[in-house]
């Protein structure tokens, strides 16, 4: 009976994962491997294709004052505008992750302050994990899989923009070798969200109890779904250490951008999350 409950939990989390996250790993891998004929992404590999891609997806434009246009130069403006649209997408993704978190059985019954803390500290880790299926060693899908942006192009941007994605590529290439599928990912995301060691939590015990159940469910899921992959459960959990370092480095880069870029403005939701984070 206990394992039946754990399987039911896995199914429930997988269903809400499918409900709230529009681009699944299955779909992303089909696009990346060219297995879908109707979904060939537009490739951004230089500034010219970035401008074309921008028009194609009609991304929200950052208002620019005319006098700054000439001062900054058109290329600087494009980079800032692109990262501005990345922020808008990240804010939407935070909203999707919040809905997913609320669907974890017991989450909404936790102290509301603790729900805020769990999301504040967990959401960037979740977003980085969710980026992995969109990436391969050569680049990443963006804009719901409509666009493929090359890793080389991202590396060619001026500092510190060029340093933003490279650590995520390095992590993702290794993480993807674990070959988790969407149903495994759903449970792993829930485990990350339900971390009882986040700073400032008021009532740790119910969070740890919830996480323990999801961990049992993940362990069972991985044994059943990947019977030949030895120690996969332990390998997946080890990734949580790398994730914390990635988030710390990411937040530091964002702080640097705030200090060095005149026209940089951080989305209010991302500001809330990153303020006093680490």
């Amino acid at each position: 009976p206990e394992s039946a409950d754990l399987r039911a939990l896995a199914r429930q989390l997988y269903e809400s994962y499918l409900k709230y996250f529009p681009l699944t790993k299955a779909k992303a891998r089909a696009i990346l491997s060219g297995k879908t004929s109707d979904n060939t992404p537009f490739v951004i590999h230089d500034m010219k294709s970035l401008l074309e891609g921008e028009q194609m997806i009609n991304c929200r434009q950052m208002p620019m004052q005319e006098h700054r246009r000439s001062d900054m130069g058109i290329m600087h403006e494009v980079e800032l505008r692109f990262f501005h649209s990345c922020q808008s997408r990240s804010a939407e993704a935070v909203s999707e992750v919040t809905e997913f978190a609320k669907s974890i059985p017991g989450f909404v019954n936790l102290d509301l302050n603790d729900q805020v803390t769990l999301l504040k500290y967990g959401v960037i880790e979740v977003l980085i994990i969710m980026m992995a299926p969109l990436m391969n060693k050569d680049g990443t899908l963006i804009s719901y899989g409509q666009i493929f942006m090359t890793r080389e192009f991202l590396k060619s941007l001026r500092k510190p923009f060029c340093e933003m994605m490279e650590p995520k590529f390095e992590f993702s290439v290794k993480f993807n070798m674990l070959e988790l599928d969407d149903s495994d990912m759903a449970l792993f995301l829930a485990v990350i969200i339900l971390s009882g060691d986040r700073p400032g939590l008021l009532n740790v015990k119910p969070i740890e109890d919830l996480q323990e159940t999801v961990l049992h469910s993940l362990e069972l899921q991985l044994k059943m779904n990947h019977p030949d992959s030895l120690q996969l459960f332990a390998k997946v959990l080890q990734k949580m250490t790398d994730l914390r370092q990635l988030v710390t480095d990411h937040v530091q880069l964002i702080q640097l951008l705030k200090e060095t870029e005149v026209d940089w403005c951080l989305h209010p939701l991302l500001q809330e999350i990153m303020r006093d984070l680490y």
Partner: peptide, 21 residues
């Protein structure tokens, strides 16, 4: 904490439709 995280709080309290970000 809720006061410092008004948007997150709103997202958590919002019952169904997505919050306009």
């Amino acid at each position: 904490l809720k006061e410092k995280h008004k948007i997150l709080h709103r997202l958590l309290q919002n019952s169904s439709s997505p919050v306009d970000l």
